[in-house]
């Protein structure tokens, strides 16, 4: 625990200079204060611009519009029936959000794990370059890349053309403006969030564990199943969370690559809030989405036994 005092503070020096018997007292009090001084500005910011807004949103969710008032004026009436009304209206969108997010997370995991494995164990001196390449697509605006998917999946572009030639797509079939396109877009969007944590935990696996498994007559697949994969679980948990959470709240992919029947909760929140100026409904949907995600995340973390995520 001696190192825990790694970073110094003024107090101790002052105390040392004084050289009085009471000096250690001052020093201890100073040390006790230091963490709070370090936390204060950052946590204050999060309190004011994250916690308080979430509370505001919660309070907005039970407001109603007084009869005859202007658009956008709402007063607090604690109308909990707002939840029943809004949720029954948007049940489909909720179901769709979670379905798409599950599919996209599964697909992203299937794509990312072998990729992260290849970078960690099979890339040799190319490893750093490959890591940079994983992050690199991030630098092109994600909206531009989603619009690029719109072009790639368009009816007259090569993907749809090729699939039609292989009779995997009917002559009048579309990929664009379909649930498939939305799920593909979401999968693509958050891929680096999946690859990087898995890579990070694979990289930390001590190769001697794998060698030991081999010495004990385990074949490659058993070694992977019993040694490598379990050791990479923290990365898998972090990656699936980092993909699932933004995926469930996404509305950009649905808006750009989908159609009227692919709208997700995010689309509903966006349009209720910004276009219809129906704050309570948007607030109900937001609060419920956040609660549902936190519940799922909590269950998932508990099941996978990875407590320390932050």
């Amino acid at each position: 625990m001696t190192v825990a005092q790694g970073i110094g503070v003024g107090e101790r020096q002052v105390a040392g200079d004084q050289g009085e018997p009471s000096a250690p007292e001052v020093s201890r009090r100073g040390r006790r204060l230091t963490p709070y001084l370090l936390l204060l500005p950052g946590l204050g910011w999060l309190l004011l611009f994250f916690i308080v807004p979430i509370a505001t949103l919660f309070s907005t969710s039970t407001q109603t519009r007084p009869p005859g008032s202007e658009i956008g004026v709402y007063v607090q009436t604690f109308r909990w029936a707002n939840y029943v009304d809004s949720l029954s209206e948007y049940t489909t969108q909720f179901g769709r959000s979670f379905l798409y997010a599950f599919l996209a997370t599964g697909l992203a995991l299937a794509i990312s794990y072998p990729l992260a494995y290849a970078i960690a164990f099979k890339s040799g001196r190319w490893r750093n370059l490959l890591l940079v390449l994983v992050i690199a697509p991030f630098f092109t605006s994600f909206l531009l890349r989603t619009i690029a998917w719109k072009q790639i999946l368009a009816d007259d572009a090569w993907v749809a053309d090729g699939l039609r030639r292989l009779h995997l797509l009917s002559q009048s079939g579309h990929i664009i403006n379909s649930p498939t396109a939305v799920v593909l877009g979401i999968t693509y969007n958050f891929l680096p969030f999946m690859i990087l944590p898995i890579y990070a935990s694979l990289e930390r696996v001590d190769p001697r564990f794998m060698e030991a498994a081999g010495d004990l007559y385990s074949n490659g697949i058993t070694t992977f199943r019993k040694v490598t994969f379990p050791l990479s679980m923290p990365g898998v948990v972090a990656g699936t969370l980092l993909t699932f959470i933004p995926a469930a709240g996404d509305y950009v992919n649905s808006a750009l690559l989908g159609n009227r029947n692919t709208t997700m909760v995010g689309n509903a929140i966006d349009s209720r809030f910004l276009r219809v100026v129906d704050y309570p409904t948007a607030a109900v949907l937001s609060v419920t989405l956040m609660a549902a995600i936190l519940l799922l995340v909590g269950l998932y973390i508990r099941r996978s036994g990875t407590e320390e995520l932050v």
């Binding site: 309190l47 807004p53 933004p246 509305y251 929140i269 937001s286 956040m290």
Partner: peptide
């Protein structure tokens, strides 16, 4: 550092990352 309130601090750091952007945006606007 060791200090009281570590769990609350960790939670306050974790929550913004576990909240979808659309909720962060809507709550700030509210």
């Amino acid at each position: 550092h060791r200090f009281r309130g570590r769990t609350v601090t960790n939670l306050t750091i974790f929550l913004p990352m576990a909240t979808p952007e659309v909720v962060l945006g809507a709550s700030l606007l509210a």
